[in-house]
Design a protein around this nucleic acid. Sequence first.
DNA 1: GTTCAAAATGTAAAAGCTTAGATTTTCGTC
DNA 2: GACGAAAATCTAAGCTTTTACATTTTGAAC
Lengths: 354, 354
Amino acid sequence: MTTKNATIKDVAREAKVSVASVSRVLNGLGGVTPATQKIVREVATRLHYVPDNAARSLITGRTHTIGAVLPDLYGEFFSELIRGIDLAARVHGLHLLVSSSHDGAEAAAAAVCAMRGRVDGMLILSEYVDAAFLEHNLPDKLPVVLLDSPVKSARYPVLNIDNRAGAIAMVRHLVEAGHQQVAFISGPKTSFNAQQREKGCRAAMAKHAPGVPLTVLDGNFSEESGYRAGQELLGRKPRPQAVFAANDMMAIGCLRAFKEAGLNVPGDIALAGFDDILISRYLTPPLSTVQVRIADLGRIALERLAGLLNPADKTPASVETLGCDIVIRESCGGKAGATVAPSKLRKSPRPLRT
Amino acid sequence: MTTKNATIKDVAREAKVSVASVSRVLNGLGGVTPATQKIVREVATRLHYVPDNAARSLITGRTHTIGAVLPDLYGEFFSELIRGIDLAARVHGLHLLVSSSHDGAEAAAAAVCAMRGRVDGMLILSEYVDAAFLEHNLPDKLPVVLLDSPVKSARYPVLNIDNRAGAIAMVRHLVEAGHQQVAFISGPKTSFNAQQREKGCRAAMAKHAPGVPLTVLDGNFSEESGYRAGQELLGRKPRPQAVFAANDMMAIGCLRAFKEAGLNVPGDIALAGFDDILISRYLTPPLSTVQVRIADLGRIALERLAGLLNPADKTPASVETLGCDIVIRESCGGKAGATVAPSKLRKSPRPLRT
DNA sequence: GTTCAAAATGTAAAAGCTTAGATTTTCGTC
DNA sequence: GACGAAAATCTAAGCTTTTACATTTTGAAC
């Protein structure tokens, strides 16, 4: 490429045909003689012609790009999520525009607006968006799929993790392994995932260890907050038999606190996390946790969105839930190696109204 | 937003001014009465007017988007890299289009071409691109910054990690800690980073343990390949005193093999990695490794690119190198806690031609 | 109340592409 | 060789914005 970019006119002139024919050939619209096609393709190649995306989008209204709005790119959760999205986007011939690190309603709104006209659809994972927000900030027809969201809307499909079932399965396992005194380290209050996990934990305790009080400590999903919770727990009398952290990073922090205090896990105290991030299996002891198939979550969300991109798709909005399995390693003292509860994708009918 | 998107004409009509005035107001070009400005802004807000990016790009030739072409999104290295890029992009008001998972020259070429016209500049990290490739596939004026690349070109700035110095520092530490018999687990032959790390290792051995042979085992950066290398090493007589893996994931696999064999690390054998991924500090024992400031790498690369976006910037292409520190934890038996060799960013003058 | 420069505003071209509709070519028939 | 339908090809409008240039308005000076 040594001169300025060739345009469709250059190709047309050089091939001695009209721009319409060039367009038809390059877009495979048919109605063009094989001979003409050959010439056009040759000239296009020779001139290194690549259609201008801006001009094309302007007229077709399509960008072949989808946007992913995420709260942050930090940590394995988001990296895996993006990976799943990216892989699926590639399959569908879609480009991926990512926007992250907006930790407030205005920042999220700005991110969403900045994407208007740049994308054909959006995947949104944010605490700050609710149905009203979306209706105010998004064009009517823009396909959107929400992730990890409490929104119930007739307009927006939602894809959630089955946090509740995952938490219930883990608590049940803990209790059945003989640990009735459970402490739960919660995630940030604003996180939908964290809320659901806590609810599941409470529900399971009520069911499987009725009457036994559940200790709940505040956490914010960071390793540091797990460490603090672990220290706090060390001083408690009686000490709980098991600790269930709302995510793996906090479990890791908690484990650090226990180790520093000379406590043996799982001998002295059992420990479990949530997410099954890569690190978990390499800890000593390997961490029992609830496995979330994060990349799958991204892939499924993108596929749902890709469906919506086709205007013929009239599938009504629904809330889907991606099941999670518990994976029992050594940190909670049960027999390791088991993977319980075959994962499943549940689909609830679209709730009426909002 | 309940009707179809408003255009600048709608705003002009509603505000009873010309489109030119609307454009001037919204772009802050001045030359417009405060009164008119007020009206225009009000109408724009009322109509939820957002300029169409495609039309704007078509005429300005700018997309305010940069593309990141990466081999894969898998693993912490790339997630951190993207994070650094994204953060910096946000600061510069740039959008980020990611394209990954192309594991061949054609796939990389396709990715690069598909981005043409969609981005104002590109960040490329790929084994498959060399200067010739770029000149053939990229528009002349498109700013590009290469990461982890052996390319030496007058046209493309390159930003590398100082793999060599990092490896040298680690080997030196190992030898000085009394481990002269070193085994190196190499990365994939095609990886520039892996090559440099191996070279550094060999150079350091020649210097600090002259005459002592270096055992080199093949690896491919995966945990599994590290595990295999570890097993292989178990059978060697004499067993090396230290193992230096070309990345942390292989060190982790190697550690697993040693643990399974009942070997004590660092008591029976010392172990070190490269990258300092998050997991490393949570291993038992915590892994000594060479710390690569990955997010910084992304940030610096983006900043270089952002500079290039400004046509006034005439900074010549150069090869920059981001220094790395060794962080000594417990896995290599030295005194833990030290961080050696203050990191630095070296900048070599642009090499002539190529 | 003119005059004139400066400020404000308006007009229209341009960007590169797709596509509806107009026009021309092709080719089998008679 | 004239006819007409089908196929191929072309013309030109239109997508939305920015911006150079033209025109109008403003307001100070006389």
